[in-house]
Every structure is written in structure tokens, then in C-alpha cells.
């Protein structure tokens, strides 16, 4: 049964990479069920991330957000800050797609704080970029400018010319 769980996960990932997002989601749901059966929180967390990603490409941003929230909850339980940061980043982007810029900014800010804590300059730069965009969308150009400047500063520091 445990091996079956891993096989479902691998099948889900393969279908995902082939661009078959409906099939990917079906396999990852099977993987999730087996992870729950075993109380395997790490596998459950992976399944939620994979399900969130698949639903982005299915155009179901609302469903993706719910899966990413489960990912975030488990990442906190498992005390995995890198995954927590990634989940916040995914949620920020998903709420941007849902045109809920305030919530997007909330999650991008949470991502920024964790990236700073982890001294992840690349993550910090991305968070600032996203926050700049979110504040433009909210009609707050002064705040957007603050984050755009910070984004520029970090990009120069890490040598990202793009």
C-alpha cells in the first residue's frame, strides 16, 4: 500500500509534466488518500502542493488556493520554513490571478518576512517584485515604488540583470 502511494505520486508528477493536468490531479488525489491512511504528513503536504499546481493550469484558481492553504498549514506543522515560504508565494500569485490584490499582498508579505528570516535574497527579490505589482494594482503607487526600489537593490546585489 505504501509503494502504491509512491507510484500514484510519481504517476501524478509524470502526467503533470506531460501537461495532462486532469489526470495528474486524479493520481495526486489517490496519493493524498494513501498518505492520510498512513498518517504520512510529509507525503500529504507534497500531494497538496502538487494538487494546487495542477489546479492552476486547470484554471481553477479558487481550488488551487484551498490546496495551497492546506500545504501552508502542514508546512507550519512540520516546521518547514522553506516550504512555508513557497506556499505563501504560491498563494500570493494565486490571489493575483483571482484579482484579490489585498490578499495577494498579505501572502507576498508573509513570503518576504520568511525569505528575510532565511536570508534568501532571491526569494526576497521575488517577493518585492510581486509586492510592487500588487500595490500598483491596488492603486498605491507610493508603496509600489518602495518595493520596486528594494527589488532593484536586491537584483543589483545578486547580479540579476534581467
Amino acid at each position: 500500500r505504501a509503494a502504491q502511494g509512491r507510484a500514484y505520486g510519481n504517476l501524478g508528477n509524470t502526467q503533470y509534466l506531460l501537461g495532462n493536468f486532469t489526470e495528474a490531479a486524479t493520481f495526486h488525489k489517490e496519493r493524498l488518500a494513501i498518505a492520510k491512511e498512513f498518517g504520512d504528513k510529509a507525503a500529504e503536504r507534497r500531494a497538496y502542493s502538487n494538487l494546487g499546481n495542477a489546479h492552476i493550469f486547470l484554471g481553477r484558481f479558487d481550488v488551487a488556493a484551498e490546496y495551497y492553504k492546506k500545504t501552508l498549514q502542514l508546512a507550519r506543522q512540520l516546521r518547514d520554513q522553506a516550504v512555508e515560504a513557497q506556499a505563501c508565494y504560491s498563494l500570493g500569485n494565486t490571489y493575483t490571478l483571482l484579482q484579490d490584490y489585498e490578499r495577494a499582498a498579505e501572502y507576498h508579505l508573509r513570503h518576504l518576512l520568511i525569505a528575510q528570516e532565511l536570508a534568501d535574497r532571491v526569494g526576497e527579490g521575488r517577493a518585492c517584485w510581486s509586492l510592487g505589482n500588487a500595490y500598483v494594482s491596488m492603486g498605491s503607487p507610493a508603496q509600489a515604488l518602495t518595493f520596486a526600489k528594494k527589488h532593484l537593490q536586491i537584483s543589483q546585489e545578486i547580479g540579476d540583470r534581467n
Partner: peptide, 26 residues
């Protein structure tokens, strides 16, 4: 599903490009 209405947001577009190759391995 909802349409991809915000593809003009570069940061989201970049994230989705990366996401296409992102899988959590067993």
C-alpha cells in the same frame, strides 16, 4: 474554470513558467 485574465503581470507569468516544471517528488 476561470480565465487567465492577468497574464500581463510579469511576476505571475514568470511564476507559472517555473511552476510548469515543478513537481514534489516521492
Amino acid at each position: 474554470g476561470q480565465r487567465l485574465h492577468l497574464m500581463q503581470v510579469d511576476s505571475v507569468q514568470r511564476w507559472m513558467e517555473d511552476l510548469k516544471l515543478m513537481t514534489e517528488c516521492e
